[in-house]
């Protein structure tokens, strides 16, 4: 107890609290960021199958390479960053040209794909075919999505990634079967 009560004649704490406003407006409008997050969330949700397809392709080929590939020591070139980790930005190059380039590269790689697949074990062949089918299905869906939103940078980036995954699978088949052929010739 003090000689002088510092609060004497002043309002109680409860009275001061009662005077506090229950609402305060933020200094900036938070809605644009929220709306953007909601949009991104929706996109992430329906892009999951595409991302999964790319991952499946990558894992399948890596698994096949380790089990059935020509050499355990051979460096694996199929190292593709998951698309989610890449920054989303407008593509710096002409999209149509890239598609054309992909088409040409793919055409070359699939030219003798059936013959090459015949050189693989049934398990490896099945794994590769499953991967390619998964990627092909994802590409169909993704192209349909791009038809609706052709300028969407995430969709474009994902399409390029799927292209890359498919080419990597095909290239891996080509490279591995070529090594097998070379060894057979050496024998």
């Amino acid at each position: 107890m003090t000689d002088h009560d510092p609060g004497e004649g002043r309002p109680s704490l409860d009275e001061a609290i009662a005077g506090l406003p229950r609402e305060l407006a933020p200094e900036r409008d938070l809605w644009p960021a929220i709306a953007a997050d909601l949009q991104a969330g929706r996109r992430r949700a329906w892009l999951q199958p595409f991302a999964a397809a790319a991952a499946i392709g990558c894992v399948a080929v890596l698994g096949w390479h380790l089990l059935d590939g020509p050499s355990q020591d051979e460096p694996i070139e199929l190292v593709e960053q998951p698309w989610q980790e890449r920054p989303v930005q407008a593509l710096p190059y002409d999209f149509i040209a890239v598609e054309a380039e992909y088409g040409a590269a793919r055409e070359q790689l699939v030219a003798d794909l059936d013959a090459r697949l015949e050189q693989l074990s049934p398990e490896s062949r099945a794994a590769i075919e499953r991967s390619l089918e998964t990627i092909a299905g994802a590409l169909v869906d993704l192209r349909a999505a791009l038809a609706d939103e052709p300028l969407d940078p995430v969709l474009r980036r994902l399409l390029l990634n799927l292209h890359g995954q498919e080419l990597a699978v095909l290239a891996q088949v080509e490279r591995s079967t070529r090594v097998v052929q070379d060894r057979r010739m050496e024998l």
Binding site: G7, E8, S12, L13
Partner: peptide
Amino acid sequence: ARGLLAQWLGVNEGA
């Protein structure tokens, strides 16, 4: 919290 606020603000802590 109430004790600190009352002390800092020099108000009666109240009920």
